[in-house]
């Protein structure tokens, strides 16, 4: 059987990669991709929990998470589209109107 700790390590690694990408990348689309990675990692962990501890709750939660992630992606794309009206660039550093 697949040891739970190993799946946990995998999930953690993907999560960390997504997080680093979130802080490092400048493109809005890549940011969205990294967020999707974060959610993916969490989903993996939940499925592992479902498998290892026999809790079917895990699969249910992942269902919800997937739906959320999809919607988040769509909303993110919509936000990018709206931002493009003001500036035709995907670089996040160019949208600093909130700078105080």
């Amino acid at each position: 059987m697949i040891p739970f700790e190993h799946i946990m390590i995998l999930s953690a690694a993907i999560f960390l990669l997504g997080l680093i990408g979130l802080f490092v990348r400048k493109d809005a689309l890549t940011l969205l991709v990294c967020m999707g990675l974060l959610i993916m990692a969490v989903g993996v962990l939940w499925i592992a929990v479902a498998k290892s501890f026999g809790e079917m709750l895990g699969q249910g939660v992942v269902l919800a998470i997937i739906a959320t992630a999809f919607v988040q992606g769509c909303v993110g794309v919509m936000l990018i589209l709206k931002l493009q009206v003001h500036k035709p660039s995907l670089q996040v550093k160019q949208f600093t109107e909130l700078k105080g």
Partner: peptide, 21 residues
């Protein structure tokens, strides 16, 4: 207060994400 806290508001999304994290 504002002068001190102002530096937090960079306008860059990623810093905000960092603070949320």
């Amino acid at each position: 207060f504002g002068y001190g806290i102002r530096s937090v508001a960079t306008g860059v999304i990623q810093s905000y994400i960092f603070f949320i994290l």
